[in-house]
Design a protein around this nucleic acid. Structure first.
Length: 275
DNA sequence: ACCCTGACCTGCGGGC
DNA sequence: TGCCCGCAGGTCAGGG
């Protein structure tokens, strides 16, 4: 599920709705979401903890607890979501972890496929946490310049779409937005990364920012089951040009959108607009 | 460095 | 109706 825009949407809602709230009780229905942490440990460390602030790196959501002393790190993978509301209003389908808050509302981590992951890290160790440390630059960070993108692409002989999906190179794009971005700038997804000209990279850079900002404004993309904290769908799926539009006409030129496989995953493109 | 496969999970829709 | 297959916003480990 969530790529960068969906995580950003969730983060903004958490800032508005959960900031300053204290956790009264924690319930762990599916321990494997916590990986190496035991449910007992997880509960003990979070009982009484206060949500201080929130941040994001790529697709990782960071909940800073107790003035930054502790960080709860969430990766939603394919089908994870956070839901917030009164206990009776929240969908209990696939609830894996529940947090009771001091206003008697519930914050639930729901995840049909159980592929998501939650970690607890001491605040001072966050920057050394290997999964964050190995991430490439976040495209919404100020240091993500066209020149930086050019350097990243120059260093690889792989296909450009594969590179956009590689979180160690650029952190935040997933399968939907990678296809949409490449359509937007007219670059064929199978082009070798190092073969792109500075002008093409400039266009790619502009399209990455354009599509991500557009998707955040639309509060994410709900093609399948993504919902925000309130259980609401996003609207970006109405704006997409290629993703899951195989066999339908390109809005720009009328050619039929086609689907190819790259690294066992579907890529959608317009064969006429993307050369 | 690159490429592919399988693993982790559940659920949905299509074809027979 | 039921069963099997492929597919799904992700990522990692392992082998060639």
């Amino acid at each position: 599920m969530p790529e960068l825009p969906e995580v950003e949407t969730i983060l903004r809602q958490l800032e508005r709705l959960i900031k300053g709230r204290k956790i009264k009780e924690v319930q762990v229905a599916v321990p494997r979401i916590l990986y190496h942490l035991s449910p007992a440990d997880f509960k003990k460390r979070l009982r009484g903890a206060v949500f201080t602030s929130f941040s994001r790196r790529g697709k990782f959501l960071l909940c800073h607890m107790n003035e930054g002393e502790l960080v709860m790190l969430i990766h939603f993978r394919m089908t994870g979501s956070l839901l917030y509301g009164t206990p009776s209003a929240i969908s209990k389908a696939h609830t894996r972890i529940s947090f009771w808050l001091d206003n008697d509302k519930l914050l639930c981590y729901n995840d049909m496929r159980k592929l998501g992951k939650i970690e607890l890290i001491k605040g001072e160790l966050v920057d050394n946490f290997h999964e964050l440390k190995s991430l490439g630059p976040d495209p919404l960070s100020p240091d993500f310049s066209p020149q930086l993108l050019y350097n990243i692409l120059q260093g690889s002989r792989r296909q450009v779409k594969e590179l956009l999906l590689d979180q160690h190179k650029i952190a935040g794009l997933g399968n939907i937005y990678a296809s949409e971005v490449l359509f937007d700038c007219g670059i064929h997804p199978q082009k070798k990364a190092h073969s792109l000209s500075p002008e093409e990279v400039g266009g790619l850079h502009r399209s990455i920012l354009k599509i991500l900002h557009l998707a955040i404004e639309s509060r994410g993309c709900s093609i399948a089951n993504y919902v925000d904290l309130a259980g609401e769908s996003g609207a970006f799926q109405e704006l997409r040009n290629v993703y899951q539009r195989e066999g339908e006409p390109c809005y720009r030129c009328g050619e039929l959108i086609c689907r190819i496989k790259q690294q066992q995953r579907s890529t959608y493109l317009c064969p006429r607009c993307q050369q």
